[in-house]
């Protein structure tokens, strides 16, 4: 670690995002002061105006790349970080703002801003890994505080963090939830969505809506076919279902594209 035997230095960076994932660190109420004693928070603008110069041992990166300046800034962050960890759906998949990748950003800009020429933006919202090498990614919209604490503990202990890559379905079975899709006919992305939330939505009688993005080897065509046949979902419903906070994660992007009308498919 930089600085030899000292505590590892941690920097928290924000790109296009809602601040919710870095807030997850401040929301680790029981662990925060203990963690703060084990690491040196060197750059975390949401929490402190104290800024220590890099390089940093660990950089936590929230948000997606949407402007030319940010595309340059993330390269500088990579250069001064030993371990770079992306946190949340914006950083790992482009986030909800990647819905622009399926539309015309010029039209979006004119729609929201009276003087579009004042606003500098890229055509696409992209994941951090599309710009620089990433050492570890934490999924979720938002990330789970417990997973962030696990990652920090693992780094402090010099071991690999335990974060699952199986589906939400597995968590439902472990938690003893009733299957909302089979029992209630509620559309659910649980079979193709990565675990990590402990199946929150089905526990509240709601279908999974994909906060953690695609699980390992997701069979999205099979799920889409089942939703069409058994729950009578139509193509526009399927497009919207796969196209939310992880819309541009490759498996979800491919599946939503499959259900678009021919004339607007690109």
């Amino acid at each position: 670690m930089t600085g030899g035997i000292g505590r590892p230095t941690v920097a928290v960076w924000k790109f296009a995002s809602c601040d919710g994932c870095q807030l997850s660190l401040l929301s680790a109420e029981d662990e925060l002061l203990t963690i703060a004693g084990e690491i040196e928070i060197a750059y975390f603008l949401e929490a402190t105006r104290e800024v220590k110069e890099g390089p940093y041992d660990i950089s936590l990166v929230e948000g997606s790349i949407t402007t030319p300046d940010d595309a340059e800034r993330i390269r500088q962050v990579r250069d001064i970080s030993t371990t770079l960890i992306t946190i949340g759906a914006c950083a790992t998949a482009g986030g909800i703002q990647a819905l622009r990748n399926f539309g015309d950003v010029e039209a979006f800009r004119s729609l929201v801003y009276a003087r579009p020429e004042y606003v500098d933006t890229l055509a696409d919202s992209t994941a951090i890994a599309e710009h620089v090498p990433v050492d570890l990614e934490l999924r979720g919209c938002p990330i789970e505080t417990s997973q962030l604490v696990e990652v920090i503990n693992a780094i402090l202990a010099g071991r690999k963090p335990v974060t699952p890559t199986h589906s939400v379905c597995v968590e439902c079975k472990l938690r003893g939830n009733l299957c909302v899709a089979v029992a209630h006919g509620t559309p659910c992305l649980g079979p193709v969505t990565q675990a990590g939330c402990n199946a929150r939505c089905p526990a509240f009688d709601r279908g999974c809506y994909g906060c953690f993005g695609p699980a390992e080897s997701p069979n999205t065509p099979s799920l889409a076919a089942w939703l069409e046949e058994e729950l009578a979902l139509e193509h526009p419903d399927l497009v919207r279902l796969f196209r939310s906070f992880n819309a541009d994660a490759p498996a979800f992007r491919r599946e939503s594209r499959r259900h678009e009308p021919e004339e607007v498919a690109t």
């Binding site: 809602c18 919710g20 986030g95 703002q97 729609l111 929201v112 938002p142």
Partner: peptide
């Protein structure tokens, strides 16, 4: 960085704004 929420909402259903607009802010969703 601009995120264009108002434009992204066009074409979505009337049931979706609570989930989508929550993502504008992690402090006051």
């Amino acid at each position: 960085p601009p995120r264009f929420f108002e434009a992204m909402l066009r074409g979505r259903t009337y049931l979706e704004p609570p989930d989508i607009t929550a993502r504008i802010c992690g402090i006051c969703p």
